[in-house]
Design a protein around this nucleic acid. Structure first.
Lengths: 343, 343
DNA sequence: CTGAAAGCGCTTACAG
DNA sequence: CTGAAAGCGCTTACAG
C-alpha cells in the first residue's frame, strides 16, 4: 500500500481493484486519516479551486449594499457552475488595508470589484500574476474590464431633469477618494477623484447641465464617504438647507437617493412635487419605494455573471473576446416631475 | 541568496539587512517572481487563511435570501477582524451535490449553515476533521451549535393568532426535506422532515393550536421547496382556494409571508381584515411591507458573528463555552387582527 | 494493477 | 545576518 496507491484510491478508482480501495478506506477510517489534504493536493495540482473577489470596503458593508449583493449573486452563478468556491476578501478592516490576506489567499484568479485607482490591495493582487478581471474600476491596462458607460448614463438622467424644466440642482455623491471625506466637494476635488466611477458620473451630470446653460460651479456636490441611506439623508439635508434651494437632487446611487427622499420628507417637503430625486443602479428597493425612484438601471447580476465567466475563461486559458460594456437604461418613475412653483 | 533568505525577505524583514531585502525584491521583479506561493506557504504553515461556509442550496439563492445575506454579513464581521477570507461553497449545482468542492476547499474550518440531516456535503466536511460549527441545523453531537428556540418561537406567534380569536388556520412551510416536493404535507411527511428547523416550527404551531382545541390534522400545511415570495404566493393561493377557507396563514419565513400577502390581495381580499398573515425571521422587508408584517424576530447578523467567532476560537484552540441559543421575540405589526366576520 | 522516485514551492529551526 | 537541510502532504509519470 504505497502512497501512490492510496492517492489512486481517492482520485482514480479505476487504477485499482474495488476490494483494495475499500480496504484502504477502512484503514484510513481506523487510522483517522481525513483524506487527501486540500492544500497539498492543490500545491501539487497547481489549482486552488476558488476565485477571489476583492471588495473595496469592509465585507460586512458589501452584504448591506443591494447592488454588491446582486453582483456577488452573479459571480456565484458562474463559479458554482464550474464547481469552484467563492473567496470573499475584505478591503478594509478599519484603516489598515493590510494586503497580507490578498497575498496569502489561495485562489486561481481575482475579480477586482469597484476599487480605487492605486489601491494597495489591487496592487498586491496584480503582483500575484494570476488571471484577473476588473469590474467598474480601476481601469488597468491589459486586464479585461467589465462595466457600463457611467458618463453617458449619468448624463441621460440629468437630461431627463433638464427636460422637465429643472435648473437648480444639487448632487449627492458617494466617495470620490478613499480618504473618508464628507462635505461639499469643489471641482478640484471632483477632478482629482481616485474613483473612476465617481469622476465619470459627475462629468456626465456636468455635461448635461452645461449643455443647458447651467454653471456647474454653482451646483453643490455633497460627497459622503459611504453609499447608504443614512449618508444620502445627511447629504440631502445639507443641500436642502442651503440657499438657493435646489429643485432636484441627483444621487450617484439608489441607496443615497432613498435617503435623500427621506430627508425631503423629514423637512416637510414632498417628492416629486417640491423636490425631484433621482438615483443610479435600479436596485429592487428603488421600484418599491414611495414614490418609486427614477433611476438608471444597470444589470448587476449579469455584470457579476459576466465577470465570473470571463475570469474562468482566463483561468482555463480559453481566449475570450474583450468584453463590451453592459447596457444601461433610464427608468423614469414617480420621484421626478417638473419643478414646483412654491419657491 | 539562498531560498531561506528570500523567504525571510518576504516574511521576516528583521532577519536581513534592508539593502539585501531591496536587492532581493529587485531581482524578483526582474525575474517575474510573484512572491511566495500562497498554497505552498499554506501547506508549510498549515493554515489556509480562510473559513468555509456550507450552504444548502445554490449560492445564488443565498444572495437572494435576505436572512442568509444578513447571516453572511455577521460571519464576515468575524472573519475580517481576524484577517481571514470567507469561502462560500455552493450546496447544489443542479441535483448533483458533488462533495468534491468541499473535499478540496482550502479552509481552516467550516460553518455549516442550515443544512438537512444526513447531507452528503456536511458529511464530506466532517470527514475533513477540521474545526466546525453548525448553525440552525442539523444537530450533530460534538459540534458547537448556534441557533434559536424554533419550536417555542413558532408557538408564540401561533398563540398570538389564537389570542386574536382565530380558529381556522393554514400553514405555508418551506422544504421539509430536500426532495423538491411541493404540495400539502400530511403529518407523516411533517414528522419525517429531514430539516430540523421545519420539524420544530411545525411542532411549535401544532402545540399552540392543539392547546386551543384545534385539530392539527385539519390544518392544511402547504410545503414549498423554496422559501421565496413566489413560493409563498403560490402556496397561499392554494390554501385560500380550499374550503373551509382559513382566516389566517402561518408562514415559516418572511419571504413566504410576503408572497402570501400578495396572494391574499390578488384574490381581492385584504390583510389583515379578511386574512391575517404572519412570518418568521423579521428581515428588513417585513417592517417595510404594506401592511407591516407580524413575525418572529431572530438576530441574523449576530447569529453569523457568533458562528464566526466560535469557529475562530476553535481554530485557535481557545476553549469557548458552548454557545447558548439566541433570543427571539414576537413582533406584532399590522398584518394580524381578529378574524373578520365576512365568511 | 502496484510501488519507488521526483518534485509542487515554500518555511523553519539550526549551524555558522 | 546568512545558507544547507529537512519536510509540509500530496500526485504523476514511469517501470515493473
Amino acid at each position: 500500500m504505497s502512497p501512490a496507491t492510496v492517492s489512486n484510491a481517492y482520485n482514480r478508482p479505476d487504477q485499482l481493484s474495488a476490494e483494495l480501495r475499500e480496504q484502504i478506506f477502512d484503514t484510513a477510517r481506523r487510522l483517522g486519516y481525513a483524506g487527501p489534504d486540500a492544500m497539498a493536493r492543490g500545491l501539487r495540482r497547481r489549482r486552488a479551486g476558488a476565485i477571489g473577489v476583492l471588495y473595496e470596503d469592509r465585507l460586512s458593508y458589501a452584504f448591506a449594499d443591494p447592488a454588491a449583493v446582486l453582483f456577488l449573486q452573479g459571480v456565484s452563478m458562474a463559479t458554482e457552475d464550474a464547481g469552484l468556491g467563492l473567496l470573499l476578501l475584505s478591503g478594509a478592516p478599519g484603516a489598515e488595508r493590510d494586503p497580507e490576506a490578498v497575498r496569502g489567499s489561495v485562489v486561481d484568479g481575482f475579480v477586482v470589484y469597484s476599487m480605487s485607482d492605486g489601491d494597495p490591495l489591487v496592487e498586491a493582487a496584480l503582483e500575484r500574476r494570476l488571471p484577473a478581471v476588473v469590474v467598474d474600476q480601476p481601469r488597468i491596462a491589459g486586464l479585461p474590464f467589465i462595466g457600463i458607460e457611467d458618463r453617458e448614463s449619468a448624463r441621460s438622467v440629468a437630461e431627463h431633469l433638464i427636460a422637465l424644466g429643472h435648473r437648480r440642482f444639487g448632487v449627492v455623491s458617494f466617495a470620490g477618494s478613499p480618504d473618508l471625506f464628507s462635505g461639499i466637494a469643489d471641482t478640484a476635488r471632483q477632478e482629482a477623484a481616485a474613483y473612476e466611477v465617481t469622476r465619470s458620473r459627475l462629468r456626465g451630470y456636468r455635461s448635461a447641465l452645461e449643455a443647458a446653460g447651467v454653471r456647474w460651479e454653482d451646483v453643490p456636490v455633497y460627497e459622503h464617504h459611504e453609499s447608504t441611506t443614512e449618508a444620502g439623508r445627511a447629504a440631502a439635508e445639507a443641500l436642502l438647507s442651503r440657499g438657493p434651494r435646489p429643485t432636484t437632487i441627483l444621487c450617484l446611487s439608489d441607496q443615497l437617493a432613498l435617503g435623500a427622499m427621506e430627508a425631503v420628507r423629514s423637512m416637510g417637503l414632498s417628492v416629486p412635487k417640491d423636490i425631484s430625486v433621482v438615483g443610479f443602479d435600479d436596485v429592487p428597493e428603488a421600484a418599491r419605494a414611495t414614490p418609486p425612484l427614477t433611476t438608471v438601471r444597470q444589470p448587476h447580476v449579469e455584470k457579476g455573471a459576466l465577470a465570473g465567466r470571463i475570469l474562468l475563461a482566463r483561468i482555463r486559458e480559453e481566449d475570450l473576446p474583450e468584453p463590451k460594456l453592459l447596457p444601461t437604461r433610464l427608468v423614469v418613475r414617480g420621484s421626478t416631475a417638473p419643478p414646483g412653483d412654491r419657491f
